[in-house]
Nucleic acid binder design. Structure first.
Lengths: 110, 110
DNA sequence: ATAATACGCAACAAAATAGTTGCATATCGC
DNA sequence: GCGATATGCAACTATTTTGTTGCGTATTAT
């Protein structure tokens, strides 16, 4: 069981990894399930292959993506688990806020 | 209707704003619905009030938080709408991935 | 075998971030 | 009015992030 502080740090790093236009674009390309090579993922961006590689490493470091080497190319695929985790967290926050607000409103109307 | 590129940029900046331990901590303090002053929000952190102010401004810039000045203090409250938006996006991504994977699996078993 | 493709590593530069400190201003309580 | 409290603004530093370029290595195709 990770400490609450470690969990917070992990969650923050996942959000940080998602907090970039280029990386969101890469994720979008991977949501169709098919693992793609770096060269393939570089197409359509205005970036160098190296830049894309760095972005992929950021995503990989937080577990949103993983790579499998096949021959001369390494293909990246999406792992939705951290994303689901982040999604549930946001859901939790907004729900928390909802009930808290209802409670405050009830307090005012009292 | 914002262009797809602008929407992507906006979404990325929301995630980026959430991608910081301190800011997630600030949000947590605000989920109880009660607007809190900067000094109040600084308590419990090891940061300067100025540092916290900067973090709040980051959150404010993406609309996750807004401030209301009352007397000498400015109180910050949470606006869950961008959070819900981000949450729905993540949900969309994982669902997209789910169906794509099922389709690929069916393709392989064919 | 050779050329083309796909990639990794390292060094570098520019820009953005995070944080502090110092100082000024406004407001509350007595 | 006066001290204490709450905040804003600006300058400055240090770190991290983003991106490029150059070079080397492995693998595929002809």
């Amino acid at each position: 069981m990770p400490s609450a502080a470690a969990a917070l740090r992990t969650r923050a790093s996942v959000f940080a990894a998602l907090g970039d236009e280029t990386r969101l674009g890469l994720l979008a390309k991977l949501t169709n399930g098919e693992p793609l090579s770096i060269s393939r993922l570089t197409e359509g961006t205005r970036l160098t292959r190296q830049a894309v590689t760095k972005h992929l490493r950021v995503l990989e470091d937080v577990g949103v993506v993983f790579s499998v080497k096949t021959g001369r190319e390494s293909r990246f695929a999406l792992d939705p688990r951290p994303i689901v985790n982040a999604q549930e967290y946001l859901e939790h926050v907004s729900r928390q806020w909802d009930t808290a607000l209802a409670r405050l409103k009830a307090l005012v109307e009292d």
